[in-house]
């Protein structure tokens, strides 16, 4: 049966809109806050375009992006080997590790409708078999790099406002400011994953694929709705 594409893409559309609304909200609230400080210093207010291309906006966006992509990259990759008894975020205890080609439907075990690179074998299958972690990891690294560059620019700007030397980017990489921004985001992401992994053992959300079925036993691992 053919469904309306708005239904079959509901999750990506829904979260895409939530992302856009949040980003726009961040831009306007950030601009208002920035201009409050400008007015307090008797300086001209700036416009939206100027603000969204400023280092202070870019670093605020990038520092949150990098931690989210790190969270998902680690969850995707570590869950290959680490398991959690009873958690729907984990696969079955016996399935930890890379699993066989037969279980993963690659090479000669690929199905007719398997992706091309799953059938291809060699480096293409090896790349495709790790593509989700690789792409998520690459976005994490890129976002963290952007955070470091924009963060340095914003830090240097505040240093100059305080009549201090701005320093260099490499000095900034070892600064408490950079690591404080980084680690305060990482700790919250890791806590969220840890909570999800553990709470989902004992708690349920009816009909959510992130939960086991309501009646599933607590020690049932790898089950989902």
């Amino acid at each position: 049966m053919k469904h309306n594409p708005f239904i079959t893409n509901g999750l990506s559309i829904g979260f895409g809109l939530l992302f856009l609304f949040s980003l726009v909200g961040q831009a306007f609230s950030g601009l208002a806050y920035y201009n409050e400080q400008q007015v307090a210093s008797k300086l001209d207010e700036i416009g939206l375009l100027q603000y969204v291309t400023s280092s202070s906006f870019v670093v605020d966006v990038a520092e949150n992006w990098q931690s989210e992509y790190l969270q998902f990259t680690l969850l995707i990759v570590l869950a290959v080997w680490l398991v959690q008894k009873g958690s729907p975020e984990s696969k079955e205890i016996e399935k930890r590790g890379q699993q066989s080609d037969k279980e993963q439907l690659v090479g000669q075990f690929a199905k007719p409708d398997s992706p091309k690179w799953a059938k291809a074998g060699g480096w293409r299958t090896a790349v495709f078999a790790n593509s989700l972690g690789l792409v998520m990891g690459a976005i994490f690294v890129a976002s963290w790099l952007v955070q470091s560059v924009a963060g340095f620019s914003a830090f240097a700007e505040s240093q100059l406002a305080n009549l201090q030397d701005p320093g260099t980017w490499t000095e900034y990489l070892g600064s408490p400011e950079f690591w404080n921004r980084t680690l305060q985001n990482w700790q919250s992401e890791f806590l969220a994953v840890w909570s999800m992994v553990i709470l989902a053992v004992y708690l349920r959300q009816r009909a959510s694929p992130e939960s086991k079925a309501v009646g599933m036993p607590h020690d049932s691992t790898g089950a989902s709705n």
Partner: peptide, 13 residues
């Protein structure tokens, strides 16, 4: 976003 930040191509710079 990366290109913008890495090139310093921002209107406030």
């Amino acid at each position: 976003l990366g290109i913008l930040a890495l090139t310093g191509c921002t209107s406030l710079n």
